[in-house]
Nucleic acid binder design. Structure first.
Lengths: 155, 155
DNA sequence: TTATTAAAAGACAAAAAGGTCTTTTAATAT
DNA sequence: ATATTAAAAGACCTTTTTGTCTTTTAATAA
C-alpha cells in the first residue's frame, strides 16, 4: 500500500542518498550493496537504477571496481526532480482530491486547505537535495532508516 | 496515476458528498445518478457504495424510489473515517518516505518537515465532514468539481 | 400477484505496480 | 587473450487497483 510516494520512488531516493554517502567516502557501491542497505529487492533495485542511469540522474561503471556514482558536477539534485521523473508531476498540480474544475476561480471546499498541503510537499522536495540529505545524515549522525550503523554505537 | 488518495477513495468521498447534497433536497440518488455526477464508472461506483453500505457509512433502499442516503442521526462523518476504511491509516502514521526506524528519537533528515505535511493532511480530513462539505458547496455556491450547475449561471 | 425498479453479490478482466530472473554487454585484472 | 566482475537489457511473473458485467435479492406500484 502506497503512502505518499510509490515504492519505486522511495527506493530511488533512498538509494541515491546512499550512493552519495558512499561517494563522499570515495566508494562506488554496486546494486547488491545498495539493495541490501536500503532494504529493497535486488533485481528491482537494479531495474530502478538502470532507469535512473539512462535518465542521467546517476552514472555507472561496469566491471571490477564498478558501481554507481553521482556526477560531481551536479551539486544540487533535488528530490523533486527524481520524483517527477518517476511519478510525473501530478502530485504538484491539481486538487489532490481528484476534483475537476477546481482552481482559484472555481474552488472546491477543500481547495484552500489542500493548497497548504501541496505547498508544503513542494517546499520539502524542492528544498532538499540528494546531496543535502547525504551530508546531513552523515554529519548530524542521523539515520536515514536504512543504515543503522550511525545510531548503533549507543550499545 | 494516484495523487494522494486512491481513485476508489476519491469516488467514495465525492459520491458521499453528492448523496448528502441530494438528501438535503429530500432526494435519494441511485448509483446511475451518482456515477454520472461524480464522473465515475457506473459499475465501479456501484461496487464502492455496496462496500460503504456494508460498512455502515451509507444506507440504501432497493426498488422504486430507492437509492442511497446518509443516516440523519450521524451528523459528523469525517473524511478521515472513510479514508481509513478504504486505505487503512498508513497515510496518517509513519514517515511517508518509507524510511524505517524513523521517529522522534531517531529521526531521518526529513522527519520534522514531513511531520508538517502529515499533520496538515490529518487536520484537513479530520476537520471536514461529508456534511460540512455538502453544506458549504451548497450555500457558498462553490463547485465540488463534479457538479457544475452551481457555477454555470455566469453565462 | 406480478411487473418494474434498483441495490447486492460476486465472477471476470484489464491495467498498473511491484518484483524476479536470464542473457548480453562492457569493464578490469591476470 | 581470457577469466572475472558488474551493469544493461529485456522477458516474465505476481499482486493490487481499477473497471465490467451477469445474476440474485428486495422493495414498490399497478
Amino acid at each position: 500500500m502506497r503512502i505518499v510516494f510509490k515504492k519505486e520512488t522511495e527506493y530511488a531516493l533512498r538509494g541515491m542518498v546512499y550512493i552519495q554517502i558512499q561517494n563522499l567516502k570515495d566508494r562506488r557501491p554496486g546494486v547488491a550493496e545498495i539493495a541490501h542497505e536500503i532494504e529493497a529487492p535486488f533485481f528491482y533495485t537494479a531495474k530502478i537504477f538502470q532507469r535512473l542511469a539512462k535518465q542521467g540522474f546517476v552514472r555507472s561503471l561496469k566491471g571490477k571496481g564498478g558501481g554507481f556514482f553521482l556526477d560531481p558536477e551536479k551539486k544540487d539534485l533535488t528530490l523533486k526532480e527524481i520524483i517527477i521523473a518517476i511519478e510525473g508531476n501530478e502530485l504538484f498540480i491539481g486538487c489532490g482530491f481528484g476534483l475537476k474544475n477546481c482552481d482559484e476561480n472555481n474552488p472546491c471546499p477543500l481547495h484552500q486547505q489542500y493548497g497548504l498541503i501541496r505547498d508544503e510537499i513542494n517546499r520539502l522536495v524542492s528544498g532538499e537535495t540528494i546531496q543535502s540529505l547525504a551530508l546531513s545524515s552523515m554529519t548530524k549522525n542521523i539515520s536515514l532508516g536504512f543504515s543503522r550503523e550511525n545510531s548503533e554505537k549507543k550499545s
